[in-house]
């Protein structure tokens, strides 16, 4: 399984290891970290096409949908 983590700042090794544990990743699974300032805060985790969206950008978008 290939995991891609998109965050607004570069995650250090401790944070990455904690993530690996939380996601129950195995030895062979690769995790890459992409920095993208537009997520503002939080992160987007892409597990082989399945996406867990915890970014602040999406929360703002949802709020916009609510208001309009």
């Amino acid at each position: 399984m290939t995991v891609q983590v998109i965050s607004s700042y570069k995650l250090d090794n401790d944070e990455l290891t904690e993530l690996r544990e939380k996601l129950s990743l195995k030895e062979g699974d690769t995790m890459t970290n992409v920095v993208d300032r537009s997520v503002i805060a939080g992160m987007i985790i892409n597990l082989d096409g399945r996406v867990i969206d915890l970014s602040f950008k999406t929360q703002l978008k949802n709020l916009q949908k609510l208001v309009l």
Binding site: G49, R50, I52, L54, L66
Partner: peptide, 19 residues
């Protein structure tokens, strides 16, 4: 009302299928 809605809006931990 907006305040109420915001409190209800939880962060969704369910993975979404994206293409």
């Amino acid at each position: 009302e907006l305040d109420q809605q915001l409190k209800k809006n939880q962060i969704n931990y369910q993975p979404k299928e994206i293409g």
